[in-house]
Design a protein around this nucleic acid. Structure first.
Length: 261
DNA sequence: AACATCATCAACCGCATTTTC
DNA sequence: TGAAAATGCGGTTGATGATGT
């Protein structure tokens, strides 16, 4: 007996989401939450797969998303984290509030990769490309977590010579002082992540005030419809997060989420 | 102006992991 | 304890707009 598909493929709509679908999904989730993604499309009146709904919500509709390109500090943080974690985009995204794994992955592939290559840095190992060329094939590192950690420990990206653009933030300074480095757990991802979360690179206030949503005047990340602009502006523009349009329960849910950050 | 190529990013697919029974 | 279901993750694709010829 084989495993059933995640959803009934028949009658399931694919492709870009319409404004109406977005509205239905947002309204449903703000009212009911998403206890079970599989059930969401049915209950929300959408002809979509639960997976698709989850993706749309996490990557585009979530109220706490930042829009627009990553700034330099964020970009540098992504580089540092990638050196340590490899292509584990969700773990990297967890460290950047308001950013999604998909967004970071796309940004890495379209911008950062090229930037690093231009700087003479291998985007996979984070080692200088010339140094890489001297490594024989059987000695060459493979793309694994351990190699990223190794690369990160061997190579301080901020000290690359002759580069066209120097990263603004030293690889280590996001995480620790020397004292902290000694205590940094390195044996497992969970340890690493809990260490990372315990540091205070950003604070909640910063996270909250960064809830800026696309507006009619912004050139990037325009929502697909006017109602979505209203929805997003409602959170970000009135100085009180615009919670008035949602129920107290919704507000509490969002505040609880923020508390957990 | 028309076409080709490139760049970007939203969305999909399939596999892995976790949860439930 | 194992199978099935649900969810999460990362790689990839395809549509679209920008840029070059």
């Amino acid at each position: 007996m084989g495993r059933q598909p995640c959803c009934d493929k028949l009658g399931v709509k694919k492709g870009p989401w319409t404004a109406d679908e977005d509205k239905k999904l947002v309204t449903f989730i703000l009212t009911h939450g998403h206890c079970c993604w599989r059930a969401v499309p049915k209950l929300a009146g959408l002809r979509r797969c639960g997976k698709s709904c989850r993706l749309r919500w996490t990557n585009y509709l979530r109220p706490d998303l930042k829009r627009g390109l990553l700034n330099e500090a964020e970009e540098q943080l992504v580089i540092d984290l990638h050196a340590r974690l490899g292509n584990r985009w969700s773990k990297i995204a967890a460290r950047l509030p308001g950013r999604t794994d998909n967004e970071i992955k796309n940004h890495w592939n379209t911008h950062i990769k090229k930037k690093l290559i231009k700087m003479g840095i291998d985007p996979v190992t984070h080692e200088p490309l010339q140094q890489q060329a001297n490594i024989t094939e059987d000695q060459a590192p493979i793309n694994s977590h351990d190699d990223h950690q190794q690369a990160a420990s061997n190579f301080d990206i901020a000290n690359v010579g002759e580069q066209q653009e120097k990263p603004r933030i030293c690889s280590e300074q996001n995480y620790s002082t020397d004292h902290e480095s000694k205590n940094r757990p390195t044996t497992s991802d969970d340890d690493l992540m809990s260490y990372m979360w315990s540091s205070d690179t950003f604070d909640l206030a910063d996270t909250f005030t960064s809830w800026n949503f696309p507006t009619a005047s912004s050139s990037e990340g325009n929502p697909s419809s006017p109602w979505l602009m209203d929805y997003h502006q409602g959170f970000g523009d009135d100085g009180e997060l615009g919670f008035g349009r949602f129920s107290e329960g919704d507000i509490n849910t969002v505040l609880d989420m923020a508390d957990k950050l």
